[in-house]
Amino acid sequence: MKKRVRRRMTRKERGENIIGYLFIMPQLIGFVAFVVFPLFFSLYLCFAQWNMIDMPEFVGTVNFEAIFRDRVFWKAVGNTFIYIAIVVPLTLFSSLTLAILTNRKLPFMSFYRAAFFLPMVTSSVAIAMVWMFIYQPESGVLNSILAVFGIKNLPNWLQDDKLARFSVSIVSVWLKVGYYYIIFDAGLKNIPQELYEAADIDGASPLRKVIRITIPMLSSVMFFVTVMLFIDVFGMFNEVFIMTGGGPDYSTYTLSMYIYFYAFRQFDMGRAAVASWVLFALVGIVTLIQFKVKKRLVIE
């Protein structure tokens, strides 16, 4: 009797096993074919030279030496950090501020929200074109507005090597704010109202409430947002590629563009693979820091 029960269980289990694998089969095949295999292959490519027709040829660390000697590569890495220094705080600050400001009853609320969300759903290629048009040095609307305020030396937003990064970053922030606004907005709704009421009784000022209650209570969300932003910035491509093509003097060049250039313009797959792993390592480090530091900083 006992035996029979156990056997029936195993059959059911076996059935579940088969069904389970059947269900995950498409994704599992895709996972092996489009994630696991490419991952190992690109790791191998880091140490190989390959013309993509014949078999890849193992060359040791040649690609690493080439890339670490390359001025442009370091410039791309440096730019990535400059982008982070501009985009991350700006996006964080503006989306959080907007979320806090709109966390109450206001007239035209749905208009604001629609306005904040709209940039994030539009194609970055299309919108980069619009911004390029706005940034035009001679016939751009931005410069003509500045001219109205009597500014004489009108900047050349996308062709000045000191300004171009900033101009591109603004577009990037503009594209992202809506997304993080929603996350913060949801986070704010989760803060218990009693905390504020208690603070009101103590007569705390609004700013104090933000610093003492809102920010600590949102720390977990802020952490998540920061990490997402870092990863977003590491992968920046479309806006830059369309607006500046990486110039002037590589001042807006990103790692993604470096990878694209070596992979699909020079067809130097080895070097592109190394660059892509550098990008991966940066993402990995940020994620790791998230896990390590989160425990200490975040109030759950």
Binding site: N156, Q159, G247, P248, D249, Q266
Partner: peptide
Amino acid sequence: YNIVDQQINNKLTIWMNGG
């Protein structure tokens, strides 16, 4: 040559703008 050319063209803008 193409890489050299690309790097030079990138600097070109700086030089043309007086940098």
